[in-house]
Amino acid sequence: MLGGVFHAAVLFLAAAGLQLVFGVQKILNLACGSFYALGAYFGVSLVTWALGAGAPPSLFLGILILSGVLLAAIGPPVERLLRTIYDRDESFQLLLTFALVLMFEDVIRFFWGTAPHQLGSVYLIYGQLKVGALTIPVYNLVVIAAGATIAAAVGWLLTRTRFGRLVRAAAENPRMAEALGIDLPRLYSRVFTLGVALGTVGGALVIPATAAMNEMGIELIVEAFAVVVIGGLGSMRGAFAGALIVGVLKAVAIAIYPELEMLGIYVIVIAVLVLRPAGLFARAAA
């Protein structure tokens, strides 16, 4: 159960990146899973390097988040590539992000090879909590807290700040936003980078608990995709609720009847698409 919430926290971050980009740029970014995987590998490398250089192990959480943020620097160039097809049919946009998935897969293979990368047991440094017969690493709770904090921060950013209002205006009506002097290319670049950062931080946070693996990107995208469909495309609140549903459901299914792990989720996805195609928590962008 708690494992489910932990998974949900990470899933939320990746799905939120997907939502943000879809909400504003109307591009369903298949490559968001790749950002997540990149974040994981880069996080392992940076923490390993930092610990080797003598950084105190208790700082590793900070280093992980930092690695995710640093990695978001790939956002602007990738967005520049996507910009060439903003005015095309969405089939082409989907395919271009699929091309990115293929390319990033090999980028990861090139730098990190095919063997899983692990951080070892450094995450136990925050100690473990004993609740009855269960032993829970405190780190998992830290990640859940971090996920919730980031969710709140993104919510605050979009609803309460000037930047957020400009983003919402551009998401609703980009042509009109331009006529009011909003520099769309710059805004898109920033939004996309923020979306990338959510994915990479999500990937970085997960690796102390599991190993970074080649397939994690393309596996995550289908889960993140389930999250956004259940929650409603483009809705941040939906991403939050959807991630919780998918995360907890997965945990419950694994505990009770493992065969149903993903099957159950797809059944829900299809049911939601058929019954409420706009999602359970549909609302205008963001």
Binding site: S91, A226, E259, L260, Y266, V269, I270, L273
Partner: peptide
């Protein structure tokens, strides 16, 4: 559905079958 929703729904059916085969 058309466009992106059609794409997503077909993807979901494909993955549904995949996880059936896999599990």
């Amino acid at each position: 559905y058309v466009k992106i929703y059609f794409g997503m729904l077909t993807l979901a059916f494909g993955m549904l079958f995949y996880s059936f085969l896999f599990k």
